[in-house]
């Protein structure tokens, strides 16, 4: 039977892809970010950790969906998904290869669990989906695993509540567990942490909020899931609302988890960046060494 073995969070900002493609990933600015991710790359490259399938939770940034159609939760059931042209040509990365058997199984299961999914059989994927793959796997000819893209609307208000996202994760876990094939499935929650990309308040970063959020995500996700949208907006910036997607990942794991790795960095372009590896406590592997890395911003002074 298939299992959700691992939850991962990752930034998905386009600047990370640009850094890779322009060879800047080791410069003074980007070096610490890619160093922080290197530990995850080494970890995930081990055969026992490499997922067969990733349920990749992200938000479409006005690429697959325009203002004419705004699904709250969509799920990609196609054989493959092409990188979207977001205005500078499609990202030079491989097509994202889906897992239609598992994707349809999850889609059907979620609808039976009273989630009002929008099933997608043709969809381009934007940086929200492809940047985390680049960060985990670098620049391969083909991505090393299958991906089920799960776009969440966090652009047009209101996005789904934290509690709804958390419950969706739980139902994704149950759906995976009722899939007969033996698969190592990851659920990745992407986007966030604190950032604001608009208006005079652009550039907002809230380190305390972010670190608390990570802590609560690990230890008390149920309480965290009740946080109202306005708190995200006030504390984590208008685009910090992307963090509700991390609750989908967290909902797919049991109450008790172990954080194998916990990386937080300020800034990546306009945003704070958090990258975690979580596993169910009962089946968790060994923590990475070092287990926790904080870098950039005011940490640099310490």
């Amino acid at each position: 039977m298939a299992r959700v073995t691992t939850g991962i969070t990752s930034s998905h900002i386009p600047a990370l892809g640009a850094a890779v493609e322009t060879g800047k990933s080791q410069d003074d600015y980007w070096g610490p970010v890619f160093k922080g991710y290197q530990a995850i790359r080494d970890w995930i490259a081990k055969p026992e950790n490499m997922p067969d399938v990733v349920v990749l939770v992200y938000n479409d940034h006005a690429s697959a969906f325009d203002q004419n159609i705004i699904p709250t939760f969509a799920i990609g059931c196609a054989e493959k998904f092409k990188p979207a042209d977001e205005g500078w040509g499609p990202r030079p990365v491989p097509d994202v290869v889906g897992h239609p058997d598992l994707a349809w199984h999850i889609a059907q299961s979620l609808i039976l669990d009273d989630f009002d999914m929008c099933i997608m059989n043709e969809m381009d994927v934007d940086h929200g989906c492809t940047i985390p793959l680049t960060m985990m796997f670098g620049e391969p000819e083909q991505w090393p695993c299958k991906v089920i893209p799960l776009p969440v609307n966090v652009v047009t208000y209101p996005p789904p509540s934290g509690a709804r996202c958390y419950a969706l994760g739980d139902s994704i876990r149950a759906a995976v567990e009722s899939f007969p094939e033996d698969l190592n499935v990851h659920v990745w929650g992407t986007g966030g942490m604190s950032h604001q990309l608009q208006g005079p308040r652009a550039g907002l970063i809230n380190k305390e909020f972010d670190l608390d959020f990570i802590d609560q995500l690990i230890n008390d996700p149920e309480a965290l899931s009740k946080k109202p949208h306005i708190d995200y907006l006030r504390e984590a910036g208008s685009e910090g609302i992307e963090l509700v997607m991390w609750l989908i990942m967290r909902g797919a794991l049991p109450e008790k988890v172990r954080d194998l790795y916990n990386f937080y960095h300020i800034p990546a372009s306009n945003t704070a960046l958090g990258a975690l590896i979580l596993q169910p406590e009962e089946t968790a592997g060994e923590p990475l060494e070092p287990r926790r890395v904080l870098s950039g911003g005011t940490f640099a002074k310490a």
């Binding site: 604190s194 604001q196 550039g203 907002l204 504390e235 300020i266 306009n270 911003g297 005011t298």
Partner: peptide
């Protein structure tokens, strides 16, 4: 941004 971003 490099110095930690805009404070809330």
């Amino acid at each position: 941004m490099l110095e930690g971003g805009r404070s809330p």
